[in-house]
Design a protein around this nucleic acid. Structure first.
Length: 356
DNA sequence: AAGACGGGGAG
DNA sequence: CTCCCAGTCTT
C-alpha cells in the first residue's frame, strides 16, 4: 500500500508540474486523431524543434487522411526530405491507404486497431489512443524510460526485454486513468525539460524527494544504456552528368539507406578511391560504355556522418559532348535541370544541389 | 536479441 | 568526437 501511495503521489505531482510548466505544442491544440498521429510519427527519434516545421507543412499539404491516401509516394517523400528515417514517410502513406481500405476512411479509435497501421508500434499506438481517444495506455518512449529508471532506480538495460517489461509495468501503474493523454504528455515533457539525459535539473525537480537515483547519487548512471554502435565507412562517388542540356538521376532501392529517394548515378567503393582508379572499375565502364571523351570536374567532397555509418562522398561533374550518343543503363533516367528540385533526395545530395 | 534506419544539436 | 531524440521493422 505504501508503494501505491508513492505512485499516486508521483502522478499528481507530475500533473501539477505539467499544468504550470508544460510545453505549448501545436499538435496539442487539436483533437483530430489524424493530426495527432502525424505529429507522433514525425517526432519518433526526432526533437520537437527539428520536426515542428515539417509538421506544419505536412498538415497543410495533407490536411486529412483521405488526402494523404490519394497522394503519390514521391510527393510524400519530398515533404519528408531532410528529416531522416524515410521509412516513416513510406509507412505513413501506406497507413493512410490502410485507413481508407480497412477502416472506411475513418481513423481507427482503439489501441488494437491503431497499432495495426504500418509504422505504428507500441509507443505511437499508446500516444494516439490516449491523447485522441482517452484510452488507458501509458506511453513508453526515451523520456519515460529515463524518468522511471531514475525515479525507481532501475539498473536493467533499456535494451533488455526484462528492462522494457519492468519499465512498461511501472509506467502503466503510474497512469492517470481519468486523463491518460494528459498524463502521458506530462511525463514526456518532464523528461524533455527536467529529467534530461545530461545535466538534469534535479535542484528544481518536484519529484526529488521520491527519486531513488537522486537519493543514491546515481542520476548520472541511469538509465543503463549498453548499446555499442559500430560505424561503417562507405565511399560514394556521384556523377553529375551533363549531356544535351539534361542530367541524369536514379532511384535508390533495396534495403539500404535512403530507400526510394533519388540521386545521381553512383559508384560505391569499400575503400577510398580517386577518379583515375574509379575509371578502371567495371561499374564505371558499364555506366560510360562507348564514351571516350568527356570532361571531368571534381566539384565537392563531403563527409556525411550518420548514426551507424560515415559516408565519404565525392561529387564529379561529367560533361559529355552533345554529338556523342549517351545511353546509360535503364535504371538511370534523363531529366531537365529545372526538374531536379522536384525529386526527393537525401540531405547529402541536397547539399550538392545547393552549390550548383 | 541485435541491427538498420537520418539528421541535427548539445556537451 | 559521442550521445540521443515523443521508435519501428527486419533479420
Amino acid at each position: 500500500m505504501k508503494e501505491k501511495n508513492r505512485n499516486s503521489l508521483i502522478t499528481s505531482l507530475l500533473l501539477s508540474w505539467y499544468e504550470k510548466e508544460g510545453r505549448d505544442l501545436p499538435w496539442r491544440e487539436t483533437t483530430d486523431p489524424y493530426k495527432i498521429w502525424i505529429s507522433e510519427i514525425i517526432l519518433q527519434q526526432t526533437r520537437v524543434v527539428q520536426g515542428r516545421d515539417y509538421y506544419f507543412r505536412f498538415i497543410e499539404r495533407f490536411p486529412t487522411v483521405e488526402s494523404l491516401a490519394a497522394a503519390k509516394e514521391d510527393e510524400v517523400l519530398k515533404l519528408w526530405q531532410g528529416l531522416g528515417y524515410y521509412t516513416r514517410a513510406r509507412n505513413v502513406h501506406a497507413a493512410a491507404k490502410q485507413v481508407k481500405s480497412i477502416f472506411n476512411g475513418v481513423f481507427p479509435s482503439t489501441y488494437s486497431n491503431i497499432i495495426s497501421l504500418r509504422g505504428v508500434g507500441e509507443y505511437t499506438a499508446a500516444a494516439v489512443a490516449s491523447i485522441a481517444f482517452n484510452e488507458p495506455y501509458a506511453v513508453v518512449d526515451g523520456n519515460v524510460f529515463r524518468v522511471i529508471a531514475r525515479l525507481f532506480g532501475i539498473s536493467l538495460s533499456i535494451h533488455s526485454s526484462e528492462g522494457k517489461k519492468v519499465i512498461r509495468e511501472i509506467a502503466q501503474s503510474l497512469l492517470d486513468t481519468q486523463d491518460p493523454g494528459r498524463y502521458n504528455q506530462a511525463v514526456m515533457d518532464f523528461g524533455a525539460l527536467i529529467c534530461t539525459p545530461a545535466q538534469p535539473k534535479c535542484i528544481a525537480c518536484v519529484l526529488q524527494d521520491y527519486c531513488t537515483a537522486f537519493a543514491g547519487n546515481r542520476v548520472g548512471e541511469l538509465p543503463v544504456n549498453d548499446r555499442k554502435i559500430s560505424i561503417r565507412n562507405r565511399y560514394f562517388h556521384y556523377f553529375h552528368i551533363l549531356h544535351n542540356g539534361s542530367t541524369f538521376l536514379q532511384k535508390r532501392n533495396g534495403s539500404d539507406i535512403w530507400k526510394n529517394l533519388f540521386e545521381f548515378p553512383l559508384i560505391e567503393t569499400t575503400l577510398p578511391s580517386d577518379f583515375t582508379e574509379l575509371e578502371k572499375r567495371e561499374p564505371f565502364r558499364k555506366l560510360f560504355a562507348g564514351i571516350s571523351t568527356f570532361s571531368v570536374d571534381h566539384r565537392l567532397a563531403i563527409k556525411h556522418q550518420l548514426t551507424h555509418q560515415a559516408i565519404h562522398t565525392h561529387f564529379y561533374r561529367i560533361i559529355i559532348p552533345d554529338e556523342i550518343p549517351f545511353n546509360p543503363p535503364k535504371e538511370i533516367f534523363r531529366i531537365d535541370d529545372e526538374q531536379l528540385l522536384e525529386y526527393p533526395v537525401s540531405r547529402l545530395t541536397h547539399k550538392y544541389l545547393e552549390t550548383i
